[in-house]
């Protein structure tokens, strides 16, 4: 009984971690390669979800909605890159934070105006809505397994892209020696656009995939954004491997902490205070984890070489 619960929560943690990875991957790429803090990354995840809901209403097909949402998110991301972000790359981190904070404020309100403040839903695609029996007495929603699988596939694709292709080579070099890359005569603008567009699509993909099991609402990107930052800081900024491991770590620690913290505390204190303190400790667990990691490794678990 308790073992199956642990197993289910572990899978949930994995699913959450994979989702965080999809968002953090783009963030760490943009941050690592361009030295650009993009707070608006979270609203791109939100936008992906909203676009999917809209296209689903038009087409009635999840696959079509997914494809259209990704393309629309990409187009919108590139538009933002072209009109605003491009002017911010050589700016101070603080200025980047404010400008992208402004975009968050705008888009959170914007989706409210366009789609209303009420939460929306995206149905799970036919055939994937049920549960699957993993072992006797243990059933698990198919869609969550689909999220885990698709996230792992994306991670594999990213691994291949970053380690095997020319653009990937430039990205790796850019994360550590941005000046040298631009000195090599590489069209850094184009590289930035590719990296940025790719990161946007990953965030939108995460938004589309999570939409069927989460309500789609304004502001849904904000908390995820902070978590994604926690992930890339723990992993080491610019490190894809670090982002992957840290995302799974955060997903598991957060999910397991929330489900078992009260039980764990009851081992050492009476039930009543455990019920009060438990949720608080559970929700700050990942921040404690981050503080601990940074205390012992001030540049994250996998610091990209050449950065301080």
């Amino acid at each position: 009984m308790s073992f199956t619960l642990l197993l289910i929560q572990t899978l949930n943690g994995l699913q959450f971690g994979v989702l965080l990875f999809l968002i953090a991957a783009g963030l760490t790429l943009v941050f690592g390669v361009m030295d650009f803090i993009n707070l608006a990354h979270g609203v791109q995840y939100m936008l992906g979800a909203y676009l999917a809901v809209m296209f689903y209403a038009w087409t009635g097909s999840f696959v079509l909605a997914l494809i259209l949402a990704l393309l629309a998110a990409l187009a919108f991301g590139l538009l933002l890159e072209f009109t605003v972000f491009r002017q911010l790359y050589d700016r101070d981190h603080l200025e980047q934070v404010i400008a992208t904070f402004g975009i968050i404020i705008f888009l959170n309100q914007g989706v409210k105006v366009v789609w209303g403040a009420a939460p929306l839903n995206l149905p799970i695609p036919d055939g994937l809505a049920g549960v699957v029996t993993l072992m006797p007495g243990l059933t698990y929603p198919v869609w969550r397994l689909v999220i885990i699988a698709s996230g792992l596939i994306v991670a594999l694709i990213l691994y291949f892209l970053v380690s095997q292709t020319r653009v990937g080579m430039l990205v790796r070099a850019g994360a550590t020696h941005a000046r040298i890359v631009s000195a090599l005569g590489v069209d850094i603008r184009r590289l930035f656009m590719i990296v940025f567009g790719f990161g946007t699509m990953l965030a939108a993909f995460a938004g589309v995939m999570i939409a069927p099991i989460l309500s789609v609402e304004p502001g849904m990107g904000d908390s995820v954004l902070i978590l994604a930052f926690v992930v890339i800081v723990i992993g080491g900024i610019g490190s894809m491997r670090g982002a992957f491991i840290a995302a799974l770590l955060i997903g598991l620690v957060d999910t397991l902490g929330r489900s078992f913290m009260i039980d764990i505390l009851r081992l050492v204190m009476p039930p009543s205070p455990a019920r009060t303190v438990g949720p608080a400790i559970a929700s700050m667990l990942i921040y404690v984890l981050m503080a601990l990691v940074l205390y012992f490794r001030p540049a994250g678990l996998f610091p990209a070489k050449g950065r301080s």
Binding site: I226, I237, A280, G300
Partner: peptide, 27 residues
């Protein structure tokens, strides 16, 4: 603890402590 780090890591670790205080208050 925070001042062991610098740059973006400092920004993020101060955020972490801010979030901890936020969740403690909520509890």
């Amino acid at each position: 603890i925070c001042l062991r780090t610098n740059g973006v890591y400092f920004i993020m670790i101060t955020l972490a402590f801010g979030q901890m205080a936020y969740f403690i208050a909520g509890s």
